[in-house]
Nucleic acid binder design. Sequence first.
DNA 1: AGGATCCCCTAAACCGCTTTACTAAAGCGG
DNA 2: CCGCTTTAGTAAAGCGGTTTAGGGGATCCT
Lengths: 339, 339
Amino acid sequence: MSRVTIADVAGAAGVSKTAVSFAFNNPEKLGQATVDRVLQVALDLGYTPHPAARALSMRRSGTIGVLIPQRLSTVFANQFLGELMQGLGELVEEHDFTLLLVPPLDGSLEGAIRRASVDGFISLGLSPDDQALETLHRIGIPTVLIDSEESPQHPAVNVDDAGGAEAAARHLLDLGHRQLGLILLPPTRSQAGPTPTAARRLAGYRAALAGLDLPAPYAVTAGATMAAGARAFESFPKGKRRPTAILAMSDMVAIGVMGAAQAAGLDVPGDLSVVGYDDLPMAAWTTPPLTTVRQPIVEKGRVAAGLLIRRLQGKVVVSPPPLETSLVVRNSTAPPDKG
Amino acid sequence: MSRVTIADVAGAAGVSKTAVSFAFNNPEKLGQATVDRVLQVALDLGYTPHPAARALSMRRSGTIGVLIPQRLSTVFANQFLGELMQGLGELVEEHDFTLLLVPPLDGSLEGAIRRASVDGFISLGLSPDDQALETLHRIGIPTVLIDSEESPQHPAVNVDDAGGAEAAARHLLDLGHRQLGLILLPPTRSQAGPTPTAARRLAGYRAALAGLDLPAPYAVTAGATMAAGARAFESFPKGKRRPTAILAMSDMVAIGVMGAAQAAGLDVPGDLSVVGYDDLPMAAWTTPPLTTVRQPIVEKGRVAAGLLIRRLQGKVVVSPPPLETSLVVRNSTAPPDKG
DNA sequence: AGGATCCCCTAAACCGCTTTACTAAAGCGG
DNA sequence: CCGCTTTAGTAAAGCGGTTTAGGGGATCCT
């Protein structure tokens, strides 16, 4: 039993393929009676237009790709993506698009990009010199960047990463902390340096520390998972040279740090203060509730999707100004021990 | 500047379209020299096969659809989906498939199904009498069900919903609770009764209560969000007829209940015990850490994806036995007040 | 009555790729 | 040197839709 095609419907209804197509897409070009008859026959036969054929013919698939620089199994462990998907989903559904998740294929994002039948891409965290961006531009698929850097080819939506980071660092300094530990986001596999977001946040931390005569902060790198956060905690010096406060670039890492610290017998925030980044919903619920930098993730998704959709409609769009970030002080931070 | 097609490459390389296609897909059918030349020309021209054309011609798109019965913006608020995506992603990436998210289109899942260019579907939480399943079968797209009910047409992967629920209820009874509040998962928009999962969990709760001479538990319905959980809490009786413990069918709801209860001045678990369902990663981190029923969500995704992929490879597959659930006792439950 | 207009509908081209014949040339054993 | 199998490549027929150009008949206008 093979698929019912437009020709089958045409035959059964005694009209041409064109008529069938019109009945669905341009009913006003046909007589009312014909439209009704064709539609009825189509229903009886259980006809459904073949999506790929439609996409080929119309040069439009009705789907938007989400370019993800890591494996799905790791990136969905961070609720950040869930939040972002909410924002993307909202706009995308409103305009009858559908979302295709595009992670690297055999380690290569470029390969995955070519295979994806999409009208446009939302791309996450790509460094401006990533080969994938070049590919995207050459193929000519409209793309909007998130957590990246605006370029002549592609608009970008970002938040005030540096501002939030600076506020976080300043908060710890104000509490009296002097020996800090920094946990940076890692580069994505395809590139050498830190991601644009990581770089901006680091700059923010540094700005707060600038001019003060402090011991250099310890810095390590950890992917955005609790496990990586726990490992990062282990890698800091113990004993009296131990940092009294930790700045993490993601909530997941911060939570992992809290867990490892508590498991090691430290009190948070009594012995160790921890600040995250993102303000995921769960940050308000941890033990203790996490002090963190809030960024409007859902909104970020909405804005990016909106931009891309307008672009797909042929309008010219420009990168919006960075969205605001703000420090949310909860209970994972306190003045350091008088150790 | 229009897209580079296979014909352009063929022309530039002085060969036929067939040769170009072979160079990519069946290099062994061509001389080595020709293959090299064609590939080089393709590279120079920046040629990329049109995915829709490929899909049409090969009758295979290389993407798997995830059928989601609600709006993306609501369903991604529940980390459950994030966990599931990790499992799906693992298998799917391994086999070079890509994932398409398919939420209802204008409120209709069936419409969305028709539009989606996929080789198979993973479907979430569909009731066995949902029209969408019928549509799926008629179009003949291989489908694997999750959190649904096995049918002759489609295999299903489930967990032992009833067992977990029964363990949860028994735990509360053992602690001495007699007046319980139940918070059920809502039906999806497209159907009348509760979802299969909700029905099985409710049966589990009932099984634990059976034969005991207890006041009937209060029961309300709430979607899997914290806000809905908070509202559910409000809707229970206050004062002395207040339930002393609450069984929620999802962790998100349970957390919402804890929040609302605490905001109302109740101590959890002192004044109110709460049990969730799912054991999301965040359940271990709430204040207090949540007692809940653990189900292997990631594994569920892996199994379902594996099943579908094997089915797409032409093998026959059968529904696996339900995956295990288990009660995880943390600190959100305690004996009731001696009120 | 004759031409212009509309209204319906259709034939055929096209979207860009894969794949099934099929051919021409080369290689091979006898 | 001949018939037979390989090898290397091609033409053309799909895949299943949409869309352009146009044809025939009824209606309208003068």
